[in-house]
Design a binder for these strands. Structure first.
Length: 419
RNA sequence: CGGAGUGUAGCGCAGCCUGGUAGCGCGCCUGCUUUGGGAGCAGGAUGUCGAAGGUUCGAAUCCUUUCACUCCGACCA
């Protein structure tokens, strides 16, 4: 992509409403633009990153055998009355009425709809196990949206739902998806923890959350310094929270410490809560059995913000390789007055593209400082400088965004460096 | 919903106290010069001063109402 043709416009100052680092940087990098409280436009650069997260999640879900579907965002209130959640979920449900006086909600989650699909599609134990998932916009009328896309009212989520014949099988499905989640978050390059958590209004017997560790996190996690034990302190009596640091771990291994986390994934063993409420059952061994369900969420848009919370410096975002909007930014110095720089860069750009790299060619007519600053701000992992100086020596200068170290390499060394 | 704050050009802000018809920096447009870490000079465009009502000869400024946005809290797969 040529920067002159891309909507590559950054802000020097962050708007006053932004408080969180990720929110400020996303706005300065022109990734997102607010439309209303908790409702955002995703502009080209931000959308590109969002799609990278989405694609990683999709790839891993697909390869584990989950089946992608797309459920409607608009859901009939009747369905929510069947499970009783139209009351339970409360004012977070944004509803409206159609021209025939039928009530609808904008979907905050899809247990009801997917269970309805289940009772229409799953007729026999032979149809099991099966897991459906979707990547789709959710709407929750949060009491207080904040922190940009971190806690937005409208946001992008991957939600998956497993169906099994009995509890044992359900637990297997749960474990399988738990492992998929581990793969996903490893690939995303995030520092995260899996913690026991409260199931809240989704319900079910047990649930675990995936948290990206960050000081700006809204959740407080307690975990052992020697074992895998970890939990969300929402499970602990408030008066006891202060006593946690230094306490022996409940599993007997190590002592507890506390860190803040951003919840980016949550997996639940739902049991038969929804299958009973909506009558989802099949005949097995001459008896009708309610299906055992699990549900599994990942906050796609939240991950973009959480990733930035974990990867930035005073110059801007430092995207991990898998999420960077571009692999390489080519920075042209004074290309306007040097046709050699211009020609060489164009040829090199094509070559990199053909080698499979996603490259941003910064051919804008502006001073080098602007290009360097913008490249640092949007956080692509590598910058390659092309100037008369480097061309005279037949070298390319490559700058590593993470530590801003510089290296001069010949073209062949450079390709070797990237492969 | 309780508490606090902010709305003035695309962004950041001043002006308001003490009423006199709107300004600064960045950005944007034009031209010339410049080009290795947010360039210089010259010229230029852009505002229903969040909205409505009131007071006044006159309101960005004072009063009332209202809307939006942000922060703290409660809340939150």
């Amino acid at each position: 992509m040529k920067a002159s043709l891309y909507h590559y416009k950054t802000l020097r100052e962050s708007p006053s409403e932004a408080e969180l680092v990720s929110h400020k940087l996303m706005i300065r990098a022109n990734m997102i633009k607010p439309l209303a409280s908790g409702i955002y436009n995703w502009l080209p650069l931000g959308f590109k990153v969002l799609k990278k997260v989405e694609n990683i999640v999709r790839e891993e879900m697909d390869s584990s055998g989950c089946l992608e579907i797309l459920m409607p965002m608009v859901q009939p209130k009747d369905l929510w009355d069947e499970t009783g959640r139209s009351n339970e979920y409360g004012p977070e449900l944004l509803g409206f009425r159609d021209r025939n006086d039928r009530d609808f909600y904008l979907g905050p989650t899809h247990e009801e709809v997917v269970t309805d699909i289940g009772r229409k599609e799953i007729k026999s134990p032979k149809d099991l196990p099966i897991t459906f998932y979707q990547i789709q916009t959710k709407f929750r009328d949060e009491i207080r949206p904040r922190f940009g896309v971190m806690r937005a009212r409208e946001f992008l989520m991957k939600d998956a739902y497993s169906f099994d014949i009995d509890e044992e099988a359900m637990k297997r499905s749960y474990q399988l998806i738990r492992n998929v989640y581990i793969k996903i978050f490893d690939r995303l390059g995030l520092d995260y923890r899996i913690v026991n958590a409260d199931s809240g209004s989704i319900g079910g017997s047990s649930s675990e959350e995936f948290h990206v560790l960050a000081d700006s996190g809204e959740d407080v996690l307690a975990f052992s310094d020697e074992s895998d034990f970890a939990c969300n302190v929402e499970l602990i009596e408030e008066k006891d929270i202060g006593k946690i640091p230094g306490m022996p771990s409940p599993d007997g291994k190590g002592t507890l410490q506390i860190k803040k986390g951003i919840e980016v994934g949550h997996i639940f063993q739902l049991g038969d809560k929804y299958s009973k409420a909506l009558g989802l059952k099949v005949q097995s061994d001459n008896v009708l059995k309610f299906l055992q369900m699990g549900c599994y969420g990942i906050g796609i848009s939240r991950i973009v913000a959480a990733c930035i919370e974990q990867n930035y410096d005073d110059k801007g975002i430092i995207f991990p390789k898998e999420l960077a909007p571009f692999d390489i930014t080519l920075i042209l110095i004074n290309q306007k007055n040097s046709s050699i720089v211009d020609d060489k860069a164009s040829a090199f750009y094509e070559k990199l593209k053909h080698s499979g790299f996603d490259v941003l060619l910064d051919d804008r007519d502006c001073s080098p400082g602007v290009k360097f600053s913008d490249a640092d701000l949007v956080g692509c992992p590598n910058q390659i400088v092309i100037s008369q100086k480097t061309l005279d020596n037949d070298l390319y200068e490559i700058i590593n965004r993470a530590d801003l170290s510089k290296k001069e390499l010949s073209e062949s060394d450079l390709f070797a460096f990237f492969s």
